[in-house]
């Protein structure tokens, strides 16, 4: 039952990923990418990790892709023109693809050679165990990620702020 579900969802994810790469229209690609995220979230659910599944939807499908779609809607890209004609990107993409395949093979190898570690299946994936692990065992990485995100927010604020000339400011004041 779970295996059948896994193959169904994995097939859906791969189909969405292919359509994401091959569609000419960027909005179709973005919608396909949302499909990938949703099928991945469903796979996490079948692996009894509801917290990760919901976070996947909330962060990737709900927040990040909304911004992507926003940008596509505002830019109003022309459908007929290809987005990029940079041929060297094929080589870069091929290299990265090979790297990913190598990584997948390594993961399979590592999982097969390493002994099965017993995990308490009632607690694993639950919110409580994730919270405890994050704030006890992995406190330092969490703090580092938090500071990184804070830096990103401050950086975005500085970059998007309009720097106004003194003359312009005076003119604006006069208008007011």
């Amino acid at each position: 039952m779970v295996t059948a579900l896994f193959y169904l969802l994995a097939g859906l994810a791969i189909a969405c990923a292919i359509s994401c790469v091959y569609h000419k229209n960027p909005l179709y690609s973005a919608v396909s990418l949302i499909g990938v995220f949703l099928s991945l979230a469903c796979i996490y659910l079948t692996l009894s990790a509801p917290f990760i599944a919901v976070t996947q939807i909330l962060v990737y499908a709900g927040a990040i892709m909304v911004l992507v779609i926003f940008v596509i809607m505002l830019l109003n890209l022309d459908e007929d023109k290809p987005l990029n004609s940079l041929t060297y990107l094929y080589g870069v993409g091929g290299g990265l693809g090979l790297l990913l395949i190598a990584q997948a093979i390594f993961v399979f190898y590592a999982v097969n050679t390493a002994g099965q570690e017993s995990v308490d299946s009632t607690a694993a994936g639950k919110t409580l165990s994730i919270g405890l692990a994050m704030y006890t065992q992995y406190l330092l990485p969490v703090e580092i990620v938090g500071i990184l995100l804070l830096m990103a927010i401050v950086g975005a604020m500085i970059m998007s702020r309009r720097i106004r000339e003194p003359n312009q400011r005076k003119a604006e004041k006069a208008v007011e």
Binding site: L38, P50, F51, V54, T55, I57, L58, A61, G62, V66
Partner: peptide, 14 residues
């Protein structure tokens, strides 16, 4: 669901 509140927020965001 163990994460009911988050689930509702996630689906509404979609």
């Amino acid at each position: 669901l163990d994460v009911g509140v988050l689930y509702v927020l996630a689906i509404t965001s979609v």
